[in-house]
């Protein structure tokens, strides 16, 4: 393996790889933000909604969580064009990842709220707080601390799942890398490089998450 040869090719390919990396970031950010927003609503509805709402959302989350994310992406890609919704591969992919994220975040939020001991709500009631006040002052702060580590994990899962969009033709980092490989035949070096970039990105996200956790942790 010739290091300088690889570095030369890497430099030559820098624009397309950077563009692919940028695409990866856009896909991941869009899916995480939209998916988490939707997921919070789902989680709240699962915790406080009526029986019918909870049933429908249970089916929604169970279905999405039981389906491999790859199948979700392919389904969104193929099905939507047939039913007349004209989405680009990129949009279909982000939609699939958003739905995927929402089901996970919904479950995380539901679980975190359920984990708060009943005594907390009772104590809040006993000092005369309404449900809204109880939720904002007592439940939400505790739930957020509980949610944080698992949510960071979901975010890294989305970053990793963004690679699957390469299969439906979205030129994110992995597909960009494959295109470079097809030109240079340096598959070992470039797959390793791509793997390293993803590892670094997720590692940084993990570290950022842990820093936030430390900041908001309650002294014991």
């Amino acid at each position: 393996m010739d290091l300088s040869f690889f570095l030369d090719n890497l430099w030559n390919a820098r624009m397309s790889l950077l563009s692919g990396f940028g695409k990866t970031l856009v896909i991941s950010l869009a899916s995480v933000i939209l998916g988490s927003g939707l997921g919070v609503l789902v989680g709240l509805a699962l915790s406080y909604g009526n029986l019918a709402t909870r049933f429908v959302l249970r089916v929604y989350t169970d279905f999405l969580r039981g389906t491999p994310v790859f199948v979700l992406i392919l389904a969104c890609f193929y099905v939507l064009s047939v039913v007349g919704v004209d989405l680009s591969a990129f949009q279909a992919g982000v939609l699939a990842l958003t739905l995927f994220c929402s089901s996970h975040v919904g479950e995380i939020v539901r679980g975190a709220l359920a984990a708060i001991p009943k005594g907390q709500t009772e104590a809040a009631k006993s000092i005369g707080l309404t449900f809204g006040q109880t939720f904002a002052s007592v439940l939400l702060p505790q739930a957020l601390r509980q949610i944080l580590p698992t949510w960071v994990n979901t975010a890294t899962e989305i970053v990793k799942a963004s690679t699957l969009l390469s299969i439906i033709g979205v030129v994110e980092l992995l597909l960009a890398t494959q295109q470079v490989i097809s030109r240079t035949y340096l598959s070992l070096e470039f797959y390793f490089f791509a793997g390293f970039v993803y590892w670094l990105l997720n590692f940084l996200i993990e570290q950022a998450g842990r820093a936030v956790e430390r900041r908001v942790s309650i002294p014991q």
């Binding site: 005594g119 907390q120 009772e122 009631k125 005369g128 707080l129 002052s137």
Partner: peptide, 24 residues
């Protein structure tokens, strides 16, 4: 209505077996 009940609860004070302090 809930608001009235919340106000009525404030007429009494309760201390619980499990303390139920807000940990945060």
């Amino acid at each position: 209505p809930e608001r009235q009940i919340a106000r009525q609860r404030a007429m009494t004070g309760m201390a619980f077996q499990q303390f139920n302090l807000f940990p945060h």
